[in-house]
Amino acid sequence: MLSPLVVIPAHNEENSIASVVEDLHAKGYRNTLVVDDASTDRTYSIASQCSKVISLPYNLGAWKATQAGIRYAYEQGIEQVVTFDADGQHLAQTLPPLLALHKRENFDIVIGSCTSRGSLARHIAWGVFRRLSGIEVKDLTSGLRVYNRKAMAVLSSEQATMLEYQDVGVLLLLKNFKVSKTEVPVKMTQRADGISRIFYSWGAVVYYMAYTTMLCLSKVSKTYHLSIDDDINLEKE
């Protein structure tokens, strides 16, 4: 298998994006794609000096920026994608066990799980959403994931475009398409700069909790048949 494409969504990450890309390149992951989510700082100019870059015309949020990178990979015929945060929390040294398991066990998704991070409130929220959604993933909000072509096909669809976050909604959609997944414990560091896109204010937290709760309560019980072709044909069984 060729080297995976590492997709890095970034919005106003001028203080960390160069070190994130350099860390990946130093560990041998030189096929990187920064998706600049309409940053108003120097993120684009810095990233373009060390990586391929897609620049979005409007700020769409972390999930849709990630999806843009996944769609690019799918359309380019890339077999394996890694999604990787731009804020310095993810470490390139944690990728080998994720990629090895993805190849060896043939899972559609491997999630880098770090359950030691986050506040008590976040862990309570994770527990509530696991119970409501039926998704057995310990770290629901980890953006460190490895996807294969089957998972990329689902995440490139119009259904996935309607989602706002990469956590429960994406995992519910993948579950409906019988996409297999597993987790690998990884180490993560504290955010190097900036603020959480979810937990930066009480208003954002309330919105996130209400939005995700509604997704869980309205989860689709039907499963789907996935046909991977040039048109990404997704059909109900």
Rank of each mutant, 00 (worst) to 15 (best):
S3M: 11
P4I: 03
V7Q: 07
P9S: 13
A10W: 08
H11M: 08
E13F: 04
I17S: 03
H25R: 13
K27P: 03
G28M: 12
N31E: 09
N31I: 00
T32H: 05
V34Q: 06
A38P: 04
S39H: 10
D41W: 10
T43I: 07
Y44H: 15
V53K: 11
I54T: 12
W63E: 02
G69Y: 06
R71K: 14
Y72T: 01
E75M: 09
T83Y: 00
D85W: 14
H90T: 02
L91M: 15
A92W: 12
A92K: 08
Q93D: 14
T94A: 13
L95C: 07
L99M: 09
A100E: 14
L101D: 03
L101I: 11
H102K: 09
I109L: 11
I111A: 07
S113T: 00
T115N: 10
T115K: 13
S119L: 07
L120I: 14
R122N: 11
G127E: 07
S133E: 07
G134F: 09
K138I: 01
K138A: 09
K138E: 04
K138N: 06
D139G: 08
L144H: 04
A151R: 06
L155W: 01
E158S: 14
Q159D: 11
E164N: 14
D167Y: 01
G169T: 02
K175P: 02
S180T: 12
T182E: 00
T182L: 00
E183F: 03
V184G: 01
P185K: 06
I198D: 04
Y200R: 12
A210Q: 11
A210Y: 08
C216P: 06
C216S: 08
L226I: 09
S227G: 07
E235T: 13
